[in-house]
């Protein structure tokens, strides 16, 4: 840099070496390719010689020692991906799942201390991996995307802040608040709404129970994932119910949510209002909504 005295202390020089070594090893771990290729590329890029950085022993060369970390990185995170997406893994089979999961880890290495963030973008990655020239009307490639979306939502609903220990449970108290406009009905903070091309709830449940379900045929599916008293629920909704909850989430207004539901589902507002009388207690029981008293 101009006009700055190039006073580089030994400490700073050594620290620069530490920075370089850490970047070198990280790149070997997270980049694609065979171990030998990765080590060679990293050596060239960071101007290091791995055999001059890592001590070899009689039993193992420096590259073999680096390989323990490189292999462990992928194996460890693949296990995490398998734990979060067991139904996607079942659907794809182990080899294909690992191919996609490895490609995902290479494309988007973790940047968070929280392992739960690891799978956050996997559904979008699968979506982006669909062939560009897929036949219109062929929904086959949507199936793993929808499945990953649903499994990710289940994982998120299990962890995000919910109603427990915040809002008194009023679901068993009979009242008719919901009959009157903006009646203090609010969407639960841990309710997630998904529009899917496949009915997948039973499929995911069967995989969770170590069964071997067949993939379902395509059929549009309005899904809610929610948590109440620490129990995660996944249900299929009628379109008006789903649009009502979506409207409640986006506007915060009961009346506008009814209007949204009517407009989007083709039902009349009177019909929806009447059905809500019966359905809202159920929605409250499963933690889709709550009442602020």
């Amino acid at each position: 840099m101009l006009f700055q005295t190039p006073l580089i202390t030994s400490y700073k020089l050594q620290m620069a070496e530490l920075v370089n070594i850490q970047r070198w090893l990280t790149s070997i771990m997270v980049k694609p390719g065979s171990l030998a290729e990765k080590v060679q590329r990293a050596d060239q890029h960071y101007h290091l010689d791995h055999s001059a950085v890592i001590r070899g022993t009689d039993r193992m060369s420096p590259q073999q020692k680096i390989g323990i970390y490189a292999r462990g990185y992928i194996a460890r995170l693949l296990e995490c991906m398998s734990a979060e997406f067991p139904a996607v893994k079942y659907l794809m089979g182990e080899d294909l799942f690992e191919t996609f999961a490895k490609a995902y880890l290479i494309r988007a290495p973790s940047t968070s201390p929280d392992l739960y963030d690891l799978g956050k973008h996997f559904p979008a990655f699968l979506k982006a991996s669909q062939p560009k020239n897929k036949v219109v009307g062929n929904q086959t490639f949507d199936l793993p995307v929808d499945l990953a979306t649903l499994e990710r939502a289940i994982a998120e609903a299990a962890r995000i802040p919910g109603l427990e220990s915040q809002i008194p449970d009023t679901s068993s108290e009979p009242d008719i608040f919901h009959l009157f406009g903006d009646a203090g009905i609010h969407p639960s903070p841990c309710m997630l709404l998904l529009y899917l091309q496949y009915p997948l709830i039973d499929f995911v449940r069967a995989v969770q129970h170590d069964e071997q379900p067949d993939a379902p045929p395509p059929a549009e599916s309005y899904v809610v994932v929610s948590r109440k008293n620490y129990i995660v629920y996944t249900h299929t909704l009628l379109p008006w119910q789903w649009f009502f909850l979506k409207g409640l989430q986006s506007t915060g207004s009961y009346r506008k949510a009814v209007e949204d539901a009517a407009r989007s589902s083709g039902e009349s507002t009177d019909s929806i209002m009447a059905d809500l009388v019966l359905w809202l207690p159920i929605a409250e029981n499963f933690g889709y909504v709550y009442r602020a008293l």
């Binding site: 850490q22 090893l25 990280t26 990185y73």
Partner: peptide
């Protein structure tokens, strides 16, 4: 890790 990458390993 470094450069904001977390390898989730103890290096």
């Amino acid at each position: 890790g470094v450069a904001h990458v977390n390898t989730h390993d103890l290096l």
